[in-house]
């Protein structure tokens, strides 16, 4: 089971970051504070990726989620007038969202954790070794443009992002003129 070493300590610290940050996001009334808690939480996820020997994904997590999405959230907050000092609860459907959130969490627990839980799980965790196709980032790069690999998803991802940007520009800009 859990043994006490550096990885365990790091895991506990990162988990505290993630859970504490997540808790802060939903409890604070100040949207900017919520964003900062979110950054803390995302940083913890980056730490998880490092612990799972996927430093490339950790860097992506920090670059994209903290460096871009968190900032985008702040821009969005500042676009909406006087949202930063919101004091009353505007969300009347909090009970519904809480139920949906709990349901989703339950679904994730059933889908992800249960199959690998203990020795009696549906899958034996020790048997399902990590993928042999992609071991490090170089293999990822080769697989991304491999004829028999993921070259089609790779190109489709690019097309999707282009479409996303065009959509964003169309929606965000007031093209009435």
């Amino acid at each position: 089971m859990l043994e006490f070493n550096a990885s365990t300590v790091a895991f506990v610290v990162m988990t505290l970051f993630i859970l504490g940050g997540a808790l802060g996001v939903v409890t604070t009334r100040n949207l900017i504070h919520a964003t900062l808690y979110l950054i803390l939480s995302l940083f913890g996820v980056a730490g998880y990726f490092v612990l799972l020997s996927a430093p490339f994904l950790a860097a992506v997590q920090v670059l994209v989620y903290i460096g871009a999405i968190a900032i985008l959230i702040v821009f969005a907050v500042m676009l909406t007038r006087s949202m930063t000092r919101m004091s009353e609860i505007l969300n009347g459907q909090w009970l519904l969202s809480a139920i949906v959130g709990a349901g989703l969490f339950l679904l994730l627990v059933i889908g992800v954790i249960l199959p690998t839980w203990g020795n009696g799980g549906l899958l034996d965790a020790t048997v399902s070794a990590p993928s042999q196709v992609v071991i490090d980032t170089v293999d990822l790069g080769k697989a991304l443009v491999d004829r028999n690999g993921f070259v089609l998803p790779f190109e489709v991802a690019s097309l999707l992002l282009t479409a996303a940007m065009i959509g964003a520009i169309v929606i965000a800009r007031d093209d009435t003129e």
Partner: peptide, 11 residues
């Protein structure tokens, strides 16, 4: 890593 740390600087 250099880029990621630099992007925390925006915060």
């Amino acid at each position: 890593y250099f880029m990621a740390v630099a992007s925390i600087g925006t915060v």
